[in-house]
Design a protein around this nucleic acid. Structure first.
Lengths: 222, 222
DNA sequence: GCAAATTAATGATTTATTCAAG
DNA sequence: CTTGAATAAATCATTAATTTGC
C-alpha cells in the first residue's frame, strides 16, 4: 500500500449485456454493427505464423502523442455540456425509494433490459443513468451483506430464542434465510458494448497532463 | 453451495468508458444520445413527496410476459449470425502473441480507445471482440500476480545467488521490480453504455424458459 | 447564522475469487 | 488443467451531514 505516487492513468472500458447477443461489437459512434466479422478462421494456428510481424505496433503507441493538442486547458473553456450539478449521481428520495422497493421485492442483479426500464422510470425524478442503477444494486446488495454479517457477529450473545435465526443468517456467504439471494450458481452469457471515444478526449475534472500512452515507459520513481 | 436450481437470470449490463464523457446514456439501437437529460433537479428533496405512488410498478413485472412470443424456439431458426464455432473466444496464436507483446510492453488496463484499436488489429487474425481483449488483460494480469506469489513462496529455499532477484519479486503485491504496475492510486472517470435489447431476446445457448421476471417470486427450493 | 473542518454515507472502480467451457 | 467469463469483495473518492470556531 501507500508510498505509490504513480501517475499512470488506468481505467478500462467495458459494457456487458445480457443474453448472448452474438454481434456485440463496439458500437462505434453510430451503428457500425456491420463488421466483417472475419470469415471464419476457426483453426487457431492456420496461416501466417508471423505473429508479431504484420501487426503495426506503432499505431498503438501514444495514439494521440502526435498532434498533442498543445493546450493544457488554458482556461475554463466550460464547453462541456456536462452534468448540471456534479459528476456523480446524487439520487433523489423518490429514486431511492423505488430502488429499495424493487430490492425488497427481490431484485438483486437486474439485467440490461430491466436496467433500461428502471432507468427510464427513475429519470422522471431526476438525472440518472443506467450505470447508476446497476451500481446501486451492486452496492446495496454488498452493503446489506456487510450489515448482516456485522449483526450476526455482534449478536453472538443473543438470547437463545433466536439462535436458529442467527444461525440461519450466519452462514458463510449464502443463505440468508429470506426470499432473497441472487443467483448462487448458473452463469449467464452477456454481450458487450463499447462506446467509441470519437469525440475528442474530454478532461476529467482537472488533471493537467493526460498522458494516455500505451506504455508507461518509466514507472516513475518506485 | 449446491442444491440451488434457481432459474433467476441474473446478469447485468455495464459499459464503461474513459474520460468522463458527460453524455454516456444508453446507446439505444442507434445513436440516441439525444436524451432530455432531465432539466436540472439539483435539489434532492423538492416536490412530490409521493415517493412510491406515481411509479407504475406493474410495468416492471414480467416485462415480456404479455405477448410472450409464444415460440420456444420451434426449431433451429438459425437466424443468429452468431459465432461460427462456439460461444467463447478462442484466441489464435497471433492474437495471443500480440497481446503478450503489449503486456510485456507494460500495458495492463487498456482504455476503451486502446481496446478498440487492439481489437481492430486482432480481428485480422480471427474473430474477437472488445470484451475479449478486456478480459484477457484482466485475467492475464491477475494470473501473473498469482504466479509471482506462488513462486516467491515456493522458492524460499532457493540458491543464495539469486536471492536478490527473488526478494525483488517477493514484495507484497506491488513493485515487481519491472516497469509494470498499473495505477495504484488515481481513479479516472468513465462513461457507460448500454446496448438496448431492441432485437428480441436471443436465447443464450439453450435453456428452455426464459422467465425474465423482475421478482423471483419463490426462490425455488432453498 | 455561516463557512471551514471533519466525519459518515455511499457512488464508482479495481482486484480477487469463482464458475465452467474446451 | 487451462483460461475465458462473470461475480463478489475490497478499495477509492466524492458528496452530504455534522461539528466547530467565529
Amino acid at each position: 500500500m501507500g508510498s505509490s505516487s504513480m501517475k499512470v492513468h488506468n481505467q478500462f472500458a467495458r459494457g456487458l449485456l445480457w443474453e448472448h447477443e452474438p454481434l456485440s461489437s463496439l458500437t462505434l459512434g453510430c451503428c457500425n454493427r456491420l463488421r466483417p466479422l472475419a470469415p471464419k478462421l476457426p483453426d487457431t494456428n492456420t496461416a501466417a505464423a508471423a505473429t508479431t510481424a504484420a501487426f503495426d505496433l506503432k499505431s498503438f503507441i501514444k495514439p494521440e502523442s502526435g498532434p498533442r493538442k498543445l493546450n493544457h486547458k488554458p482556461e475554463t473553456i466550460q464547453v462541456e455540456p456536462a452534468l448540471p450539478g456534479g459528476t456523480r449521481w446524487n439520487p433523489t428520495q423518490e429514486q431511492i425509494g423505488l430502488l429499495e422497493m424493487l430490492y425488497r421485492g427481490g431484485m438483486r442483479t437486474p439485467n440490461a433490459q430491466q436496467i433500461e426500464q428502471i432507468t427510464a422510470q427513475l429519470e422522471k425524478y431526476g438525472r440518472i443513468e443506467g450505470k447508476n442503477v446497476f451500481y446501486w444494486f451492486q452496492n446495496h446488495k454488498a452493503r446489506e451483506r456487510q450489515k448482516q454479517k456485522r449483526n450476526s457477529l455482534g449478536l453472538s450473545h443473543c438470547p437463545r430464542t433466536y439462535t436458529h435465526t442467527i444461525a440461519n443468517i450466519n452462514l458463510d456467504t449464502k443463505g440468508h434465510g429470506e426470499e432473497e439471494e441472487d443467483s448462487p450458481k448458473k452463469r449467464k452469457c452477456m454481450t458487450w458494448t463499447f462506446e467509441s471515444l470519437e469525440e475528442d478526449k474530454k478532461h476529467c475534472k482537472e488533471e493537467g497532463d493526460k498522458t494516455l500512452e500505451l506504455f508507461p515507459l518509466h514507472p516513475e520513481g518506485r
